[in-house]
Structure formats: C-alpha cells, structure tokens
Design a protein around this nucleic acid. Structure first.
Length: 120
DNA sequence: CATCTGACCTAGT
DNA sequence: AACTAGGCCAGAT
C-alpha cells in the first residue's frame, strides 16, 4: 500500500490527530504508520505546521517526537504555547520533555478500533 | 536547476 | 548500545 499523496495525507493526519484524547499524546512516526505512510514522519510535522488555522481545530500540541520531546514547540503561536496547552490538560513538561511519557502516550491504532466499532 | 533543511523514524552495521 | 545511512517530500536558498 503506497503512501497517500498531497491533500489526502494532510487530511488523514488532521483526522487522526483530532482523535487524540485530552491529556494524551502520540508521535509523528506513529501517526504516519497508522495512516499507511510509514517512514513519512517528517511530512506529518509539515502537515501540522499548516494546521493552526484549520477548522475544526487540530490539537497539534498533542503530537511530540518519539522520545517525548516537544520538538515543535517553537512553531506554536506565542499566545498558545505547546507546553502550556499540555500542562493545561494535565501533561507535565520539564525542560521541553514530557514527564513519564509511557503513561500519557496514546497508540493511534486505538482510533482504528473505534472506527471499526462505529461502523458495525 | 541543484542542494539543503526540517515539528522524524527505521533499518542496518 | 552507539552510529550511520537512507527514506519521506515541500519550501527555501
């Protein structure tokens, strides 16, 4: 199964990120793999970069890198910093790094199950 | 047009 | 376990 191209990829990223529960996070690579484009983690970051003024809103602050670092923090608007939004949801940050990542990490394939159940 | 650079990750050594 | 190389692809230089 080849990777999605252009707008489809971007849409798939947005749809999946919108499913991340409050207080949980996931990673770029996990998202890429989940939408059938394993290895395209960088594209996920680029898509999210374009997502700030998209409706419905995309909770891009819930996406971090593999080890839990807030690698995209610098690209957030000053009035809504990434770390602040996560803290507001109960996700603790120390030095641009998520504390106890294992406890808040959300596996994207959970969304596939939800979709599957919803279609039954 | 060629090359470099990212909100990254995996696979190979 | 450390390290490298490669893949991904849109923008910037």
């Amino acid at each position: 199964m080849p990777g999605l191209a252009g707008d489809e990829f971007t849409q798939a990223v947005y749809d999946l990120v919108r499913l991340i529960p409050c207080g949980r996070v996931t990673s770029y690579g996990a998202i890429a793999r989940c939408i059938g484009s394993a290895g395209a983690a960088r594209r996920v970051g680029w898509a999210l970069n374009q997502s700030f003024d998209v409706l419905p809103p995309v909770p891009a602050h819930r996406v971090v890198n593999r080890v839990g670092m807030l690698s995209g923090a610098m690209h957030f608007p000053p009035e809504a910093p990434m770390a602040s939004q996560l803290e507001a949801e109960g996700v603790h940050i120390v030095g641009n790094q998520i504390v106890d990542l294992n406890r808040v990490f959300w596996e994207p394939w959970t969304a596939l199950e939800l979709t599957y159940n919803a279609e039954l």
